[in-house]
């Protein structure tokens, strides 16, 4: 059983998933990601300029998902990797975002570690590959 995220729904977030398209609030200047209808920071701004995030950031927190407990759409990946890390990353531009970490360092993940966004397959459903961002140690 997948996440019930339809293909049209996935497609609507392609700019965010493929190239980290964020929005800069025209009222307070801060960057929202993922997009909001009202700025997450000033909570009043509703006008935004599109801005492409650098993908660079640091690990704010992390976990390692054990294979057996992975969501069904990630079970193939879990079977292959045994377990996989998920990180909460604080991006250079300010927002935090959650994603998988690929090529984790053998010495272990640490809070504060520098990472960069990479483009990867997230999962496949209905024969359709869902691409999106993950992170990788710099």
């Amino acid at each position: 059983m997948g996440a019930h995220i339809s293909i049209p729904m996935y497609r609507r977030t392609v700019p965010q998933r493929y190239r980290l398209a964020g929005q800069r609030c025209t009222a307070c200047g801060r960057v929202n990601f993922p997009p909001k209808a009202v700025c997450r920071y000033c909570r009043t701004g509703t006008g935004f300029d599109s801005v492409r995030l650098s993908g660079r950031g640091t690990v704010y927190s992390y976990t390692v998902i054990a294979g057996g407990g992975a969501p069904p759409e990630f079970s193939e990946e879990a079977r292959c990797k045994g377990s996989y890390p998920v990180v909460l990353v604080e991006l250079e531009e300010g927002p935090r975002i959650i994603a998988q970490l690929v090529d984790p360092p053998e010495e272990g993940i640490t809070v504060g570690m520098k990472v960069e966004a990479v483009f990867r397959r997230i999962y496949e459903e209905e024969g359709v590959i869902r691409y999106g961002f993950k992170f990788r140690p710099v």
Binding site: P34, T63, I65, P71, A99, I122, Y123
Partner: peptide
């Protein structure tokens, strides 16, 4: 669902963070 789950995270994973 759109972001946390598609990060491959589980409910436990979020509390683990």
């Amino acid at each position: 669902t759109e972001y946390e789950r598609l990060a491959g995270s589980t409910f436990a994973g979020i509390y683990a963070l």
